[in-house]
Simulated assay, not measured.
Amino acid sequence: MNDQIKKMELEESLVMNFVQDFFVTYDKKRHIMHSSFPEDGTFVVLGNRICGHSAIQQAMLTMATTTHQLLSIDIQHVALPLGENDSMYQVLCAGEVEFGEDTQIHGFTASLLVYLKKPNVLNVVSFNERCQWPKLS
C-alpha cells in the first residue's frame, strides 16, 4: 500500500471520529457547539442559515433538544488546491433523530464540509441538516 493511500485512510479515520463527536456535541454539549466551526462557519438546519460563532451558539441554545443515531457516514476527499498541511472532506450522514420529549423517530440526512489542518485540527466549514420535523400542534 503506498504512502498516499495510508495518509488518506488516516485522515478519513480522523474525520470519522470528528463527525461522531460532532453529533455527540450537537445532542449533549450544545453550549460548546460553536467551537467546532471557524468564525465564518455556516450552520444550516431546515433551511435556516446561521453564520459565525455567536449566532451559532445562540441558535443552538434555543433549538429543541435532539438525540441523533448515525446509521451511515460517507467521507469523500475534496480535491482543492490547499496548502500541504490542509485537506477538505465532504461528509454525508444519514440516520434517525428524536426531538425533545417526542419519542417519535424521524429520518435525517446531513452534509458537512470538514477542514483538516494537519496534524489534527478539524473544523466544520459548513453543516446542513434536513429532516422531517415533528408535527406542530
Rank of each mutant, 00 (worst) to 15 (best):
V124F: 05
N48D: 13
K135V: 13
T65Q: 12
K118T: 00
I56L: 12
A64D: 15
K118A: 01
S111F: 00
I32D: 10
T109I: 14
Q104V: 12
K28N: 14
G95N: 12
L71S: 14
I75A: 10
G107H: 14
D86Y: 06
L82E: 10
T109R: 13
P134D: 12
T25N: 10
Y26R: 04
V124Q: 06
L112A: 13
I75P: 04
V44Y: 13
P38V: 07
F18W: 01
N120H: 10
E84N: 08
G100D: 14
L112K: 08
K118V: 00
D40I: 01
L80G: 02
Q4K: 05
G107W: 11
S35M: 10
I75D: 12
K6N: 03
L112G: 12
K135F: 09
M8R: 03
Q57A: 08
I105D: 00
L82H: 05
A64E: 14
M60G: 03
K135H: 09
H106N: 10
Q76F: 08
A110H: 03
T67V: 08
M33D: 03
L61D: 13
T42K: 12
E12D: 02
F37T: 02
A79W: 15
D86E: 15
E96A: 15
T62H: 14
D21Q: 08
V44N: 15
L116A: 06
E12C: 04
I105R: 02
E129H: 00
F22I: 08
Q104W: 02
V78Y: 11
K117S: 10
E11P: 00
H53C: 03
F22R: 06
Y89E: 02
T66A: 10
Q58G: 12
F108V: 07
N85I: 03
T66Q: 10
E12M: 07
V97L: 09
C51Y: 03
P119M: 08
M88C: 14
Q58D: 15
D3E: 10
H34P: 00
T66S: 13
